[in-house]
Structures are given as C-alpha cells and as structure tokens.
Amino acid sequence: MSDIRLQIDGQEVAAQQGMTVLEAARGAGIEIPTLCHHEKLEPYGGCRLCIVEIEDRGRTKLVVSCVYLAADGLVVRTRSEKIDRIRRTILELLMAHAPDAFELQKLAEEYGAQRDRFEKEPMFCIHCGLCVRYCAEVKQKSAVGFIDRGIRKEISFIPEIAARECEPCKECFPLCPTSYLQAAYVLTRSLASSADKVG
C-alpha cells in the first residue's frame, strides 16, 4: 500500500492506493454529497450525486467519486458551477419520485433544486439500492431485491425469506433515503399474513 498525494479543492490530501476519490476526500474532511454510497458496501455508482471534476493531462472531466480511484497527482474539484448544476438536476429528477424525502429536501436546499421542476411520478423508491445491497452483501440474506426495470423497477421482498429474517434485523430501514422501505416491508408482511389466513 503505497501512499499517494492528490489535490482536492486546492488542498493537499494524502491517500492510499486503492482508495476512491470520495474516500480520500472524506478522509481529509472534505464533504461530497452521496445517496447510494455506504462504507460497508461495494461501490455502486447509482445515483451520480457524488460527481466531481478532475483534471487529467490538462483536460477536465467529470467522474463519479465513489467509484473513481484516487491517483497520485490527481487534481479534483468537488464544487463548481457545472457540478452544482448537475447535482441540482439529479435532485430535481429524484424529487419527481420522492418529493417529500427529508434527505432530498436537505440537499435540494443546498443546491437550489426545485421540488416541482418535473412532473410528479411518486414511487418513493429512488433505486439507490442500499437496502438490496446491504441485505445481500452485509447480511448475506437477500431478503429484498429489485424487480422489473426502467420506470417500473421497484424493490420486492421475498416473503419466505423476509418472514424468517427481517423481524429481528431491520438494519436496512435507517439506510433508506426516502423511508419507502419500511412501507414496502410492512406491506409485504401484511400480504404474507393475509395469505396465511386465507390459505
């Protein structure tokens, strides 16, 4: 593990080989907003909110800091007009799905995102995958997964596994940025118990 040095927002930052730009920044106390990132989970790169600008041989490009590896001599900017604009649009799009999510509202305020810019399509889940990945990677239970794709993609518990594993765990609940997960879980459980009564 060799040490590398990079520059983030004009500040010299030391990091280790294999660290992502996000990890290097956070290690130095520089905050980058994230929605789908979790320390215990494999990098996912789903929400794109953690986007930053890097300088690479004189050219700037946009990269997703939670998956992009820090490298020696890298120059990173975590805020700029362009970055803010992208984050604002991402937040506005997400708020079309989950307009009342506290975490999104907090970020929206910081980036001046308008809650009602896009037509509402409430589905509450913003597909960050935290619940799904946490259950698979940390708990190794895979009681919850995604189904379908595109605009119909949603989370779904496997009732047989959920009935066995979820009650004492529920560790994914606080991870959800929109609190949708709880609702889905309760729903599945009520469905399962009503199915039991009928069957």
Binding site: V132, C135, A136, S142, A143, V144, G145, F146, I147, D148, R149, S156, I158, I161
Partner: peptide
C-alpha cells in the same frame, strides 16, 4: 444464487 437476484433477472 439468491432468489432475489433470480427474481430481478426474471422480471428484467
């Protein structure tokens, strides 16, 4: 392979 994963692929 976890059932949740199979379900994801089968519905995808």
């Amino acid at each position: 392979v976890p059932l949740a994963r199979i379900q994801h692929i089968a519905t995808f």
